[in-house]
Structures are given as C-alpha cells and as structure tokens.
C-alpha cells in the first residue's frame, strides 16, 4: 500500500494508488478488441504466439440480455467481465483467441452508457464444437452424432435458463439464437436503437423542446475529448422523438430513436439539447436494417416477456 506515492526517474508522479498498488495489474476485455468493429480474435491473429482456433469450425450464439436496477451503475467493460466469468462458471467451451494473451471470443454491440438501463443488450459468443463433449454430463454436452449447427441451436436455447443464474442480479438473458458464419458483427450490423426515457417535471416545456429540436436543421453539441473541444451535430443521429405526457403525475415518457452513424448519441446529450433533466433512460431496442425494413438482432416475441421486464422508467 505504501507504493501509492511513487515517482519515475524523470520525477513525474506515477498514476494513482490503483495503478501502483495493483502492481501493474491490467485487465483486457473483449471490448478492447471490438472497439474497431472487427470480431475479437482476428485482431491479435497476426502477431506471434500460439495459434487461435480455426474460425471455420466455430459456431456463434447471439444472446439478448437486460441490464436493470442497481447493476446499471456498472460500465460496459464491467458487463464484459461479468459475461466472461459467467461463461467460465457454466463451463461452456468458449473459443479463445490465439496470441500471447488469449482471451475468450466475446463480442458486444453498442456500449451502454453507465447509469442507463436496457432490455436490449447483445453479445456474440463463439463456441468451439470440438470441445462440446469435454464437460462430462452437462446440459451443454453434445449428443453423439449431433451436428455443430444443431448443437449451436440447442446451446442458444439453453442460454437464458442456464446463464441468467450465473450473472449478477439485474443482468438477465432474455433470448438467444445461433448465427451463421459470416453474419456481420453487432457493431457493423446495428444501425439504430430506441430509448425510453423518464422525464420528471411539467411535460409542457418538454413537448415544445422536442418540436423545436425536430424542426431544427442542426443541433450542435460540444464535448471535451483528449483536451480538445469537439463540436458535433446531433441532428442527423436523431431519427425520431415522441413525448407521452402524464401531466397529472408531473412527468413524461420520451421515446427516441437514434442512429449509430455518423455517431451514436447518449441520453445525456439528448437531455442537454432539450434542456431537460432526465430520470432513468432505458434502451429498449437495437435495430438492424435489412432489405429496407428493421429487425432486431435476436427477435423476441412479446410472449417472452421483454416488455414485462420493465425498465425503471
């Protein structure tokens, strides 16, 4: 602990207590390598080190999960680590990358800002069918003669019931399906998402602010990034906004559809554009555009209870 106050040879202070007491402890998560949208694993494939798995024999399960309640205060990186641990606890034969620092092949979609809830988070998990009979008698053990595709379908079906108990409270697996090789990654495929935001206070000014914002040609916001002030126009990313006022309760529900390109929009930014103070924001949908129509990465029927899970908003 006394290493907290530390200096380097040139006299600069080194980090804070966490950095130095941790003894250089760093954690890399799947998020690190998915930041550029490439599937995890290929990013380190070109460097030396033990070879990774053969991508052509791997199968992929795409799971939809919720993040509700206290756990919403954890970060996107934290959620990635929760998944890694849950998959290891389950003993599932997750494929690992090659290289000197192998990591499980998980790939998450859009980052959810810390503090927001969601009923529409996604993760792609790469599984290795070659190890599908290594666990003895478990739910995920492949039957003799079971084809990898069939095994993957069965795995996806088992995700909600088997993984939800292994994830922290509030992180619930809602549904999963297997996706075929060559399916674009979540980062590439998702083009928009829908938010439901609780806005406390008199709804009248909010209704006016939303109308004004939608009529505007541009909505400039500035943010500090690496010491520089960057100005962005949010208007192209705001696809739709709708207010459902509840004047009696002195609050309103704001529904917003945002595009992921040219860049994603955080609820806090929408709040600043509207001059409003938001309660809890909940991402309710992520959308993939296909043949001119929208669909969700994992289609869930209302009967599965997604709507009933309910965000705090």
């Amino acid at each position: 602990m006394s290493t907290a106050v530390d200096s380097t040879a040139d006299g600069r202070p080194v980090g804070t207590a966490v950095g130095s007491t941790a003894g250089g402890h760093t954690v890399s998560t799947a998020e690190d390598s998915t930041a550029d949208g490439r599937p995890v694993g290929t990013a380190v494939g070109s460097t030396a080190g033990p070879a990774g798995p053969n991508p052509s024999t791997m199968v992929r399960v795409r799971a939809r999960f919720a993040k509700l309640g206290k756990v919403r205060w954890t970060s996107h990186r934290d959620v990635a680590r929760m998944w890694e641990r849950a998959l290891r606890r389950a003993g599932l034969p997750v494929a690992y990358s090659g290289g000197f620092s192998p990591h499980p092949l998980l790939s998450f979609g859009l980052a959810l800002p810390t503090g927001c809830e969601s009923t529409a988070e996604y993760v792609d998990v790469v599984l290795d069918p070659d190890r599908s009979r290594t666990g003895g008698d478990t739910w995920w053990t492949a039957d003799p003669g079971e084809e990898p595709e069939d095994w993957a379908t069965r795995m996806a079906a088992g995700f909600p019931a088997h993984l939800t108990p292994l994830l922290p409270g509030g992180v619930d697996v809602i549904a999963a399906r297997s996706v075929t090789a060559g399916t674009p990654s979540l980062q590439q495929a998702v083009t928009s998402c829908t938010w439901r935001i609780d806005v406390p206070g008199d709804p009248a000014p909010l209704v006016v602010a939303v109308e004004t914002a939608l009529a505007a040609g541009s909505l400039l916001v500035s943010r500090e990034r690496k010491g520089r002030t960057e100005v962005d126009d949010l208007r192209p990313s705001l696809l739709a906004m709708r207010v459902v006022p509840d004047a009696a309760a002195e609050r309103a529900t704001l529904t917003v559809e945002t595009a992921t390109r040219p860049r994603g929009v955080r609820p806090a930014e929408i709040a600043s554009v509207l001059g409003a103070s938001f309660g809890t924001a909940c991402r309710t949908h992520q959308w993939i555009e296909r043949d001119g129509s929208q669909e969700e990465p994992v289609v869930t029927r209302p009967a599965l209870g997604v709507e009933m899970l309910g965000c705090a908003s």
Partner: peptide
Amino acid sequence: LTLRWHDPKASVAE
C-alpha cells in the same frame, strides 16, 4: 534500466 522510487516525504509521514 528504469528506476522508480517512492516519495521520501510519504516515508516521513508513515
């Protein structure tokens, strides 16, 4: 060779 050292002032407080 990289040299790192603790702040001698912190040693005094300790």
